[in-house]
């Protein structure tokens, strides 16, 4: 119980820190970095739901991220839809497409699924890159409006945008939290651990995998749409495999299949990237091996490692009284023997 209260306290402290961040740090550059890493976190939660909890590695998520971003851009600039309607439509469109792709892709398993989604991601990238008239091709897509006002709320300043993104991040974390501790979440984990066993238990794996995939695509497209409205410039690069790799790095450093993982990993890696900024294009020289070493020697990530450590300590504490009792008994009995010896002597 104490652990649970402790965790609540932690969450409250972190949330308060996130809320107070713009007041504590007035440097607009850091604010920018924070906002963008919150956007990545949302995307990583999407990936985590499917790769971490359901056990399928989708390599198309950078594509879905870009699709959400481009859909928002095209809807607002080319079609002229009001911002928030476009925002909802962009997410819905991407999610719907994700559902169609998922319906087909999820018939495949393991390697085939990874290769299939890799190809889907690449097709999305190629379409964005080649379809000049719609996406602007390699020149990029400019002129995306900032989020429109909702009543008295205006999102024109960086601080306001920070809170907007934070709001969505909290929402995503809340949904994830509720989901993971629900029966549905348990079902996903069951599928991850053994799909055949889950099937034998009467779980409709296809239906559950699809639901998990669709929700995961939704989170990712939400992140994409936020990215478009925050950065307001899009290039085909955001659909590229290296973005996918970034998501994976965030997720693995933080801890795949944990709730805190995406937050911890994204913050840490973004912070490190800022320190290594002089490397620019060569940062993969460092991050490539880091990821590979991590997966070999520390596959649970920071949050995963912490959870394991805690579980071990709890186990030790559970065993402690018994061990103490046993030790005490041993001491008593040997003492008794000693006394007997003394009497005899």
């Amino acid at each position: 119980m104490a652990v649970f209260a402790n965790r609540r306290l932690w969450i409250a402290v972190l949330a308060a820190l996130a809320l107070a961040f713009p007041l504590l740090v007035t440097n607009s550059y850091y604010l920018h970095i924070m906002t963008i890493s919150f956007i990545w976190m949302i995307a990583v939660y999407g990936l985590n739901l499917f790769a971490g909890y359901t056990g399928y590695l989708s390599l198309a998520h950078a594509g879905f991220f870009a699709m959400g971003a481009y859909a928002l851009g095209i809807l607002t600039v080319k079609v002229g839809v009001p911002f928030w309607l476009a925002f909802v439509l962009a997410c819905l469109f991407t999610t719907l497409l994700g559902a169609v792709i998922g319906l087909v892709a999820l018939r495949t398993k393991e390697h085939f699924f990874a290769i299939y989604t890799l190809c889907v991601g690449y097709i999305i990238y190629l379409v964005i890159d080649k379809w000049d008239s719609l996406t602007g091709g390699v020149r990029g897509f400019i002129g995306i409006p900032a989020p429109a006002d909702i009543g008295p709320l205006s999102f024109q300043t960086p601080v306001a945008q920070y809170y907007l993104v934070l709001f969505f991040l909290f929402a995503v974390i809340f949904v994830m939290y509720r989901l993971v501790y629900s029966l549905t979440g348990r079902t996903y984990i069951a599928i991850r651990n053994s799909e055949e066993l889950a099937l034998t238990l009467g779980i409709s794996t296809m239906k559950n995998k699809l639901a998990s995939f669709v929700l995961s695509v939704f989170f990712t497209s939400l992140a994409g749409a936020l990215y478009a409205s925050f950065i307001r410039f899009l290039g085909p690069d955001i659909a590229y495999i290296s973005v996918m790799f970034d998501f994976l790095t965030y997720l693995l450093v933080g801890g795949i299949g944990t709730l805190a993982g995406p937050v911890v990993g994204t913050l840490l890696v973004t912070f490190l990237s800022q320190q290594l900024q002089f490397l620019q294009d060569y940062r993969m020289l460092i991050f490539g091996p880091i990821l590979t070493l991590l997966i070999i020697f520390y596959p649970h990530g920071i949050a995963g490692g912490f959870i394991r450590y805690q579980a071990k300590r709890k186990e030790a504490r559970r065993l402690e009284p018994e061990a103490n009792r046993a030790a005490a008994e041993l001491a008593v009995s040997s003492q008794g023997r000693g006394e007997r010896h003394a009497e005899e002597g």
Partner: peptide, 21 residues
């Protein structure tokens, strides 16, 4: 199997950055 794939992607990006470097 998830780990092999991720490690392979790590190597891929490392070698690419290496070539560029």
């Amino acid at each position: 199997p998830l780990h092999d794939k991720i490690a392979a992607i790590g190597i891929l990006l490392f070698l690419e950055a290496f070539a560029q470097f």
